[in-house]
């Protein structure tokens, strides 16, 4: 599904530069549920963003589903993001003047799907996250957990191969976090490949594999016995 070899990334800071990723090797197979861990500033988001084509590596190879991702034009990147990837963010990133339903339908709009069809499909996904009754509501009328569920529905709408989540529970209380995790586990059970950034041990324990970053390299990569979130709900 995903192959990364000797990936480097630095950010220019004034005259010098900050070497954030110093040679990352990572390979993820279909159906995996991986937690990328590490302390704040260790480069987790940077790695995830490169995987998500929101950012580009300086060096190294990245192959997604057999496609080498390198020197993409903006247009190509947009198409790949739309086709292969679903994003879930810590701060939800819903469009504030669009209803929950319209937010979920947006990736389908960019796929060129007809309005009626995409609203139907968006409704189906909203139902899956249990928010059918909230379809017409604006994000500001929803709780944090509800917003994240809308974001999950949106990430799933275009049926991506890979789901990328950057601290999806970072802005939620423990109870809601567990609800969201239960939902994500459920998606993984259905076969979706999931890559998640977190710095919380208990959330990482709910994944099947933990990758730990420190000082720009992977210091640990292990399979874990998945803790089911259901136990906490």
């Amino acid at each position: 599904m995903l192959e990364i070899r000797q990936l480097h990334k630095s950010y220019p800071i004034g005259d010098s530069s900050l070497h954030v990723l110093k040679g990352i090797d990572l390979s993820v197979k279909e159906g995996e549920m991986v937690a990328i861990m590490g302390s704040s500033g260790s480069g987790k988001s940077t790695l995830l963003n490169i995987i998500g084509m929101l950012d580009e590596a300086d060096q190294g190879d990245y192959i997604l589903d057999g496609l080498p991702i390198k020197n993409l034009t903006e247009k190509k990147a947009a198409i790949y993001r739309n086709k292969f990837l679903g994003f879930i963010f810590q701060s939800f990133n819903l469009i504030n003047y669009k209803s929950a339903l319209e937010n979920v339908a947006l990736p389908l709009y960019y796929q060129g799907m007809k309005r009626k069809e995409r609203l139907e499909l968006a409704m189906f996904h909203l139902e899956k996250v249990g928010l059918a009754d909230w379809a017409k509501h604006l994000p500001k009328e929803l709780s944090g957990g509800q917003k994240q569920r809308v974001a999950i529905a949106r990430a799933l709408a275009a049926d991506p191969k890979l789901l990328l989540a950057d601290e999806p529970t970072g802005a939620l209380d423990t109870k809601t976090s567990h609800e969201i995790m239960e939902f994500i586990q459920h998606l993984n059970d259905e076969g979706k490949t999931i890559l998640m950034v977190t710095h919380e041990e208990d959330i990482a324990a709910m994944c099947k594999r933990n990758v730990r970053l420190r000082d720009g390299i992977i210091i640990e990569d292990k399979m874990v016995e998945q803790v089911r979130a259901q136990l906490y709900v």
Binding site: A78, I79, N93, L106, R154
Partner: peptide
């Protein structure tokens, strides 16, 4: 800016 970033992450082309 944020909205445009979101749209791009969801697959909006520069042209759109």
């Amino acid at each position: 800016t944020k909205e445009i970033g979101i749209r791009k992450a969801l697959g909006a082309s520069p042209r759109s």
